[in-house]
Design a protein around this nucleic acid. Sequence first.
DNA 1: ATAAACTGTTCTGTAGACCGGAACAGATAT
DNA 2: ATATCTGTTCCGGTCTACAGAACAGTTTAT
Lengths: 271, 271
Amino acid sequence: MAKRRLITKNRLMTKSKLIESVVRALDILELLDAEGEMGITEMADKLDMEKSTVYRAINTLRARYYVSQDPDTLKYANSYKLFEMGHNVVRNTGIPKMAYRFMRKLAQGSRGAVNLGVRDGKKVVYIDKIESDETVKVCMKIGQSIPLHCTGLGKALLSFMSEREVRGLLGRDPLERFTEKTHGNVEDLLADLAEIRKRGYSVDNEEHIMGILCVASPAFNAKGEAIAAISIASPKMSHNGPGCIEELGQAVYEAADGFTKSIGGRRPVYF
Amino acid sequence: MAKRRLITKNRLMTKSKLIESVVRALDILELLDAEGEMGITEMADKLDMEKSTVYRAINTLRARYYVSQDPDTLKYANSYKLFEMGHNVVRNTGIPKMAYRFMRKLAQGSRGAVNLGVRDGKKVVYIDKIESDETVKVCMKIGQSIPLHCTGLGKALLSFMSEREVRGLLGRDPLERFTEKTHGNVEDLLADLAEIRKRGYSVDNEEHIMGILCVASPAFNAKGEAIAAISIASPKMSHNGPGCIEELGQAVYEAADGFTKSIGGRRPVYF
DNA sequence: ATAAACTGTTCTGTAGACCGGAACAGATAT
DNA sequence: ATATCTGTTCCGGTCTACAGAACAGTTTAT
């Protein structure tokens, strides 16, 4: 039975040009990423592999310090090496450093938490932030990922992608609803994106989390690609005057635009 | 020539029970980590592999979104997936969250940057920080690693390891000197560690960076292992009164001790 | 106590995945 | 035009990496 499954697997492997043992090792890494810590037998079970296969892969990962074993429980977990490497990914882009002065200025001019995000596949990842003076500290928000279709940062990053790309990215399965204000289908989202494109900033009015308002604007590289977005988020009740959102929008637009210009980027005119 | 090298490699691989293709994939990941971005030919060159080998490995990593290819230059770089996974490693430990209130209290009682670090092999990795009010912002310090033997955090983490462990970790090659105050050999370091153990906090007085004073103390789990350390760092000139270092030491000790107690940890009595 | 049922780890023969090397396909430079 | 870079594809043979079982400890159950 295990044999039959294997044959199928191998057929697939042969078709796509991937290295099977590397795929298996990555499966393990991702299982540990999702579950925290686990023993060999349990991994073999969940991934439908032989124990000895898992053992060898884990052994390789451990030899290179990607995972570590708790000497008492004998369970394995991903190690800090990934943390370090992950930060190098961001540091190599230089984006947080270059964006910082514009985020700072934005933070000083308004109340609310300023965030910097980039797209990672179908998600947005926070890569830097400046906390508002007295917001409740949310520990380790950097590194977290949030959806594209219902967040300020996400919609800002989507807004300058072609309709084709957006559909390719999100069109497969229905958009997950987080609140009653979340866009339920791609058509609504695309309409919103067109407005964002015209306006220069996106608004997430409780589309992801009730009670939170978030306004964001994208920054571009020289090729006109949105490489990052800056947002400002705050509890909804602190916005009562009319025109308040427009003011915030103008402020984040200016921050993102300043960042864009400082790196020789350009906002695409139209498409 | 390339063939002879390979045979040696394979011998080694066979002896140690590692999966060769996974090792190669990790080599690639680490090369990109160190160098930022690179083409296939250059990687093959630097790692002494065949182009096709690198191609297949990279293809596997790309299929899983560990690396991405720049569509213009065709060069590959590590992607944000590593960043996300890295943060999950830290989040899963829960350490920053649990340590935060003690770091906060420390930051409010003194001036200086408060840092939280853990050991990662022969290094310390920053996993959280609270910046002083008006220090120059050093962008993305979190995720960076610093040496064990010449930093406040590092020595705090070493101080409750056995002499055997310390020698095993650092005894191989001579200690790297960063300033004239860096411990040049393991004996001096061990003497310092004994004092730290008695005193309860470590002092890095320009051992790593000239002009910087750093005081740190370790926190322990229930098994009495130092799982993290808290430090407070500031420019040296701001400490002029006698007894100033002692005061700082007392403050970080209390922070680390509070953290230890809050997680049901215990400070080892002696060994 | 004894056994049964868990762990992680080691061993071995062999199927076939993976590697090396060469060829190919575009770009860019000469 | 020719040479020389890229990244990518193909193929045949070697020897890796797999499956499965055995082993060695612990913990749990009888």
